[in-house]
């Protein structure tokens, strides 16, 4: 009997939750705000779905409703990607050690 590919994805998902659990506990509390902004940025990898949706079947210039939702999602995700990574970078630049 063959295993449904869904089971593989589910395995990846469950294992990633465990990886996330251990990795996040090791994050120092003083960096919890950058942690939130960077998780925000990476969850915008949802843009891959938006790109597929926007380009689906549109070799011409006629766009269907599904394409339009894709384009809207691209804008939202792009705000998040650039905003999230840049604001994280800006915060991390400020964390400095004592000058000796």
């Amino acid at each position: 009997m063959e295993i449904d590919p869904f089971i593989f994805r589910l395995s990846i998902f469950i294992l990633s939750i465990f990886v996330g659990y251990y990795v996040v506990w090791s994050v120092t509390p003083s960096l919890h705000t950058p942690l939130m902004s960077v998780t925000n940025a990476i969850s915008s990898v949802i843009i891959v779905g938006a790109i597929i949706a926007a380009l689906a079947g549109s070799s011409n210039t006629v766009f269907e409703t599904s394409n339009i939702f894709g384009f809207l999602a691209i804008i939202l995700a792009a705000v998040n990607i650039f905003g999230g990574f840049l604001v994280t970078q800006r915060m991390l630049q400020m964390y400095k050690k004592k000058k000796k």
């Binding site: 994805r9 998902f13 939750i17 990886v19 969850s43 990898v45 891959v48 779905g49």
Partner: peptide, 16 residues
Amino acid sequence: LENTALIITGALVGSS
């Protein structure tokens, strides 16, 4: 979407 990057990220962010 059957997309690994998105599944991994979702799990990371969710548990975080």
